[in-house]
Amino acid sequence: MTGPLLELVNVHAGYQGRSVLHNISLTIPEGSFTTIIGPNGHGKTTLLRCISGLIPLSEGDVIFDDAPLKNLRADQIVERGIVHVPQGDIIYPDMTVRDNLLMGAYLPSVSADADKLLGEVHRIFPRLAERRNQIASTLSGGERRMLSIGRGLMTGGRLLMIDEPSLGLAPVVVDQIYEVVADFKKQKRTIVLVEENASRVMELADAIILIDNGQIVWQGAPDELMTHTEIVETYLGG
């Protein structure tokens, strides 16, 4: 592992004057797998939206690859190499599966490799290859999640942020999705994963960040976390 790829310095943010995140500072080293956990509605999603530029920072700065991102728009931040797979299924409902995936390779820097990337995504999610000409709104919940993640993979990028990949899916499908996520880890991709339920990601993560009430309550290695019984009891349900 080398120096930090992403660094947040004293970040404050919120929606329409209501502040959600307070004084967040963290570092993500290149090639690491970081999991952000914590109760719902306490700022995990907001944190990702801040990093990808969907909501503005009210204070502090985000530094990616030694360059500050503070005044960049979301579409410029993607160009720098931060890929955000948002929560829920934000897909293009009226496009075919193939066109959805090709939108992932919209940036000029990757559009030349679109066919190669498409092949790779089809290898990872064979289901998407089967349904390539189907309209996205007709997909099942699990397939939509695969499409959403697949579209993120099409963008390439140096940092992949995935927001609650298991949300609302049947356990079988969650297993499938996590097999893929485990592969990312083997490939040494830099991953930031948000999950409400930490149990699945414990063995994958290099670092855990616990967010509650818009603040970082604890961060460190997973095995270290297990020694803090009060945290385990409060946040991981024992």
């Binding site: 990808s52 530029g53 969907l54 293009y92 939108m103 940036l107």
Partner: peptide, 25 residues
């Protein structure tokens, strides 16, 4: 066309389009 795809993407989900690097403005 690429522009056409970007227009359709913006129409269907402005947020997803932004995250794919489409300059929505």
């Amino acid at each position: 066309t690429r522009l056409g795809r970007a227009i359709r993407a913006t129409a269907q989900s402005r947020e997803a389009a932004l995250l794919n690097g489409v300059p929505v403005r």
